[in-house]
Write a protein that binds this DNA or RNA. Sequence first.
DNA 1: GCAGATTTGGCATCAAGTGCCGTTAGCCAG
DNA 2: CTGGCTAACGGCACTTGATGCCAAATCTGC
Lengths: 197, 197
Amino acid sequence: MTSQTQGRPPITSHAAIEAIAFAMFEEHGFEMTTMDDIAAAVGVGRRTLFRYYPSKNDILWGQFDDSLVEFRNSFREVSPDTPPWDAVRSAILAYNSYDEAALPQHRRRMRLLLGTPALLAHSELRYAAWRAVVADFVAERTHQRAEDLVPVLAGRLALAVAISAYEQWLADGATSLLDHIARAADGVSLHFTEDFG
Amino acid sequence: MTSQTQGRPPITSHAAIEAIAFAMFEEHGFEMTTMDDIAAAVGVGRRTLFRYYPSKNDILWGQFDDSLVEFRNSFREVSPDTPPWDAVRSAILAYNSYDEAALPQHRRRMRLLLGTPALLAHSELRYAAWRAVVADFVAERTHQRAEDLVPVLAGRLALAVAISAYEQWLADGATSLLDHIARAADGVSLHFTEDFG
DNA sequence: GCAGATTTGGCATCAAGTGCCGTTAGCCAG
DNA sequence: CTGGCTAACGGCACTTGATGCCAAATCTGC
């Protein structure tokens, strides 16, 4: 990370912007909150806000790109004799392991992301990078190209599992997120080969 | 269909607009073609264009909503003793059965839809309706609610299969679309329970 | 030709993005 | 202390998608 030593120092931070914007989104809804509103609340020029985030949609995604690095690393730590799909399952679980304390906030964030049409659509572009991590791993394991059917399919199936689990989790506060994910992953492995039971 | 008998007749049609817009998208790219451009080419007011399509993204989706009715019907024709996942597989295949003559056009359309970020994102909103068809069917068969895990997961898996197949098809002109879909569907049923083979 | 119904399209307006460019504010020599 | 380098700030203008409003246009039935 190029430590900043010269030039005018940043007037705000991603964290500060996200905190304020997030509160406004929850208060008045995503669509109703304009970039002008956020800029004013943060105390920064609208033009500057667009330098921190390329689009309004991106504000909610925070450190997503960074988290993908961890996700990718978690695949490297899997022993080579673990079956690929088991590895994927473990990686998804690890990726979604949050501190007890961080869960309520995460839940609110995901509720916004999965409940706002504009964000739902935009998410597709972010998910592509997530799927690519899975696809790359499976491609390496199966000695195929990342664009081949099996790796691509693995990425999409993994995402289907993750999102399905999140939807269940948001609707059902009782069960833990990880349990929901495990359940969804089992759904792929078991139910669909015979019946949906 | 409410047959129009009164009032000013429409000056154009969805088909005409789509034909012109499609050509312009392929010629100059989706982003570079503005609604003003399209309106001018069609010979219609920009405001009118927005009455035919709620958004620029929707132009490429044409009769999608209508096609979902067929999709839904195709599930009703499946015999009750067919295992759900087999039924889903058959329905996907039926849904994507195009005349030989219509295939090149369909291919060009899908290339645009899957190759343009803005459309890729917007597609997510359309896919939701498609997944719901699958989920409704599976819910009925398994006596669950459409929002429960198994139906939701089935919808997402079905879509994962379909899109993966389309990506392969677009990259590989040799194999037929239906073969790609069948192959992807098998990928779910077989490979993931043991290994990716 | 008139009344009713419906489409059209111009106009104004809002909001997301983006390029341009002068301004601001730290840091570091000299 | 001062001037220069550097990088962030933010105003301004502009493009484009999208929406409300409303008068004009046009076909049908009487």
